[in-house]
Write a protein that binds this DNA or RNA. Structure first.
Length: 223
DNA sequence: CGGTGATCATCG
DNA sequence: CGATGATCACCG
């Protein structure tokens, strides 16, 4: 693995981004090991590859990838018409100690405050090494997007705070949904139960719906 | 276990 | 056939 230093500033980061725009995954991975045939057993592989290439550290800290720059890195697979193929994981959903939490100080708001999107062709009928990176770009939520995120976050967190976590499904939330996020179905974590007691439940995560990221992509690429 | 990075597989 | 619920790999 070739070591890449952390970028000193946004310009340096973006120059690295533009240097990989248009390249195939195989070309980008040439100095970083083998490209997997399928992503089934390597689901986060591409995201971690891009982190390495751009100089983010591969830690698992709940902060931005480029902490000094306040920038979060997200790769996003698109189909032939530039529509997102998958939802976008944001962060783990807090299920305990949520009373008094406000959106402005939430992990969701912090993560999405400034995102470096790295879109790439992700259709499964294209061999992984032949999929290409589109032009990465920086994004911050518009006022409307921020309001939509805040509304969903408030709805979700109120339910969690009042012991209704088990009633939340992926259908809830216009742009921000909650879905299981764990290694398997056996993983359990503490949450607030209906009667205020502590219950054990599946860990959850916040995800951005495709419609939300789709509008981001279409606005940026003017399509 | 609880985070990071996500995509898979099944079902309505 | 797309979304929901489940799952995969790795790290400290």
């Amino acid at each position: 693995m070739k070591k890449v230093q952390r970028p000193e500033n946004v310009d340096e980061l973006m120059q690295r981004c533009y240097s990989i725009a248009g390249l195939s995954i195989g070309e980008i991975a040439s100095n970083h090991g083998q490209v997997p045939e399928k992503l089934l057993h390597y689901k986060g592989w591409f995201g971690q590859l891009i982190e390495t290439v751009l100089g983010a550290d591969a830690g698992s800290t709940p902060t931005q990838d480029f902490y000094e720059l306040g920038i979060e890195l997200k790769t996003i697979p698109l189909d032939e018409e530039y529509h997102p193929l998958e939802t976008t994981f944001v962060c783990i959903t807090p299920l305990m100690g949520v009373s008094g939490m406000i959106y402005e100080e939430s992990n969701v708001r912090n993560k999405l405050n400034c995102v470096l999107w790295v879109p790439f062709s992700g259709s499964r009928n294209i061999p992984v090494s032949e999929r290409t990176v589109y032009t990465p770009f920086l994004w911050s939520p518009s006022r409307e997007e921020d309001l939509a995120l805040r509304a969903d976050w408030n709805d979700h967190m109120e339910k969690i705070a009042t012991g209704q976590i088990e009633s939340i499904t992926a259908r809830d939330g216009d742009v921000l949904q909650i879905r299981p996020k764990a290694a398997d179905g056996k993983a359990l974590t503490k949450a607030i139960g209906a009667d205020g007691s502590i219950i054990m439940t599946r860990p959850r995560g916040f995800y951005l719906r495709k419609c939300f990221t789709d509008s981001i992509i279409r606005r940026e690429y003017k399509i």
